[in-house]
C-alpha cells in the first residue's frame, strides 16, 4: 500500500494543490491528512472541502486525524495559542460553516492502518500536543509505542527517529526525494514536514510517500507559488508574519 501523507496543510491551498499534483505521479493508493488542515492560511474552506470529499471517496477513503489547530478552529477555543495563531484560528472559526467546524472538532486523534500509527503530535499522548523535537521525546514515544512505524507532524520539519537493534536512538534528517528504508524489525518515528508552512529553511512544500510493502518512506519537496499564498493571507487581513514566513520557510 502506498500512502501520500500530508501534514500541517494550514489552509494553504497553493501548497496543497502542488503536493496533490505531485502525488498523482507517485502511484498512491490512499491519502492521509495528518492534522492541522486549518490555521494560519487564507483558504480554510477550500482545504476542508477537499479533505471531506476525499474522506467520502468510497474507493479509497482518506485517513484524517485532528491537529491542535483543527481543534481550536472547530471549537472556537484558542486557549494556549500564540497571538498570530489565535488571530487566524478565530478568523477561520468565523469563516467556516457550523458543519465544517463540527467536522474538524470531531476528527479522531489517531488512526491505524497497515500496522502504521498515524497521529498529529506526540504519539505517546496525542491530546497534549507535545512537539517531537528532540531525541529524548522521540525515544520516549518509540519505547511507549507498539507499531512498527508511527507518522506524526506538528513540528513542521522532516525528521526520522529509529531504535536500533542495540536500543540506541538513531536520528536522521531525510534528504528530499531519497527513499529511506525502514527495517521491519525495528521501530521508527517519522516526522513529516509541513505542506503549508515549512519551518526548516526550505520554503518548498513538504509531504511524504510511504510504501508499506517496500517498507520505505520518501519525503518530497514541492516548489509552489508561495507568493500567491502570502498575498491571500495579506488580503484576508491576517498578521503579516504569517505571510512573510511562507517565503522564507521559517
Amino acid at each position: 500500500m502506498r500512502f501520500a501523507v500530508l501534514a500541517d496543510i494550514h489552509a494553504n491551498r497553493q501548497a496543497c494543490e502542488a503536493c496533490l499534483r505531485h502525488a498523482e505521479g507517485q502511484a498512491v493508493d490512499r491519502y492521509v491528512f495528518l492534522g492541522d488542515l486549518v490555521g494560519y492560511g487564507a483558504d480554510p474552506d477550500w482545504v476542508v472541502r477537499m479533505v471531506r470529499a476525499r474522506l467520502a471517496d468510497p474507493a479509497a477513503p482518506a485517513l484524517v486525524v485532528r491537529g491542535n489547530h483543527d481543534e481550536a478552529v472547530g471549537r472556537g477555543d484558542t486557549a494556549g495559542m500564540t497571538g498570530h495563531a489565535a488571530a487566524a484560528a478565530l478568523w477561520h472559526h468565523q469563516r467556516l460553516s457550523a458543519e465544517d467546524r463540527a467536522f474538524l472538532a470531531g476528527l479522531p486523534l489517531e488512526v491505524e492502518a497497515e500496522g502504521v500509527h498515524f497521529v498529529h503530535a506526540d504519539p505517546a499522548d496525542p491530546a497534549r500536543w507535545t512537539y517531537v523535537t528532540d531525541a529524548e521525546i522521540a525515544r520516549a514515544s518509540l519505547e511507549g509505542g507498539h507499531a512498527w512505524l508511527t507518522l506524526c507532524g506538528h513540528v513542521h520539519a522532516p525528521m526520522l527517529y529509529g531504535l536500533t537493534a542495540t536500543a540506541k536512538l538513531a536520528a536522521f534528517r531525510p534528504a528530499p526525494g531519497v527513499a529511506v528504508p525502514l527495517l521491519r524489525a525495528r521501530r521508527w518515528l517519522a516526522v513529516m514536514g509541513s505542506v503549508g508552512q515549512p519551518r526548516d529553511g526550505d520554503p518548498a512544500a513538504c509531504y511524504a510517500v510511504l510504501d508499506t510493502a517496500a517498507a520505505e518512506c520518501t519525503w518530497h519537496r514541492v516548489p509552489y507559488d508561495a507568493a500567491a499564498a502570502a498575498a491571500g493571507i495579506r488580503a484576508a487581513g491576517l498578521p503579516e508574519r504569517l505571510a512573510s514566513r511562507l517565503l522564507e520557510g521559517r
Binding site: 526520522l160 529509529g162 536500533t164 537493534a165 542495540t166 540506541k168 536512538l169 538513531a170 536522521f172 534528504a175 531519497v178 529511506v180 528504508p181
Partner: peptide
C-alpha cells in the same frame, strides 16, 4: 550519506 547511520551510535 543519504540514509540513517545505525552504526554511528555503536
Amino acid at each position: 550519506d543519504l540514509l540513517p547511520d545505525l552504526m554511528a551510535e555503536e
